[in-house]
């Protein structure tokens, strides 16, 4: 009984340490969402409007990152590519041995594959007349996509995008395998000394739940904010 008590106390005392992992988890998600967005949008545009060969290349990229488990990618990247690159003296100024960097890149590239499909679907769902009308006014395709297609497609994509956020959030827990001190890694290391995994796992679960809730709430608010007046299709999901 006394053993349990002291373990519970140890768990309690470890709280600030575990909460500190939130910063790393949040950093992983924001970084990966950003990388995924910045790459995902052009990939989607190329997938829909690109040359047939470019489309094939994008489809290949998507297949690759959809097909290989994130855990495998993390190992390949961190212990393989990054370890190799870090031996090149000219690159020594880069933090190549940082697990965080590897994790953001891997999660970001994977998310880019998924996000590109979200945006592709949104673009494909727009009426063909939108692009036709833009072209008829003399807009180049680049201008039409930037000013007419993307503003509409990105709005439509928000519900699916918040889904991607919650998936990415949970995938980010895998970063503990390459030494990123995010919530899961800290939970495990404390549990290893207190031998009380249950309360700590509940805490970790609650933290991930909170991040999911906060993120999705924020995206809902964004969706309402950019809603097109009178456009019934919006906000119904």
């Amino acid at each position: 009984m006394e053993g349990f008590y002291s373990a519970a106390q140890a768990s309690w005392e470890a709280m600030p340490y575990i909460l500190g992992g939130l910063w790393w988890t949040a950093g992983l998600i924001l970084g990966a969402m950003l990388v995924g967005f910045v790459l995902g949008v052009p990939l989607a545009v190329l997938h829909v409007y690109g040359h047939p060969l470019t489309r094939k290349a994008v489809a290949g990229y998507v297949w690759l990152f959809r097909g290989v488990p994130i855990l495998v990618q993390l190992y390949l990247f961190y212990f393989g590519i990054m370890a190799y690159l870090s031996e090149i003296p000219a690159l020594s100024f880069l933090p190549l041995s940082s697990g965080f960097l590897s994790a953001v890149i891997v999660l970001g590239l994977t998310s880019a594959a998924y996000q590109s499909q979200i945006f592709r679907g949104a673009m494909a769902s727009l009426p063909a007349g939108q692009l036709k009308a833009a072209r008829a006014l003399g807009m180049s395709d680049a201008v039409a996509i930037r000013s007419i297609i993307l503003p509409q497609a990105l709005r439509l994509a928000i519900p699916a995008w918040s889904n991607e956020y919650s998936i990415l959030l949970k995938d980010s827990a895998l970063a503990f395998t390459i030494g990123v001190l995010e919530v899961m890694a800290r939970t495990r290391s404390v549990a290893a000394t207190t031998h009380q995994p249950l309360p700590l796992s509940i805490l970790a679960g609650a933290l991930f739940f909170f991040l999911t809730w906060a993120g999705i709430k924020t995206l809902k608010r964004l969706e309402a904010k950019v809603r097109i007046p009178g456009y019934a299709h919006q906000g119904s999901l």
Partner: peptide
Amino acid sequence: LLALRQQVGMIFQDFNLFDH
């Protein structure tokens, strides 16, 4: 092409206004 389209206006059956 772009120059031609600037000088030729088009009205569509289903309007095709930019919804956003």
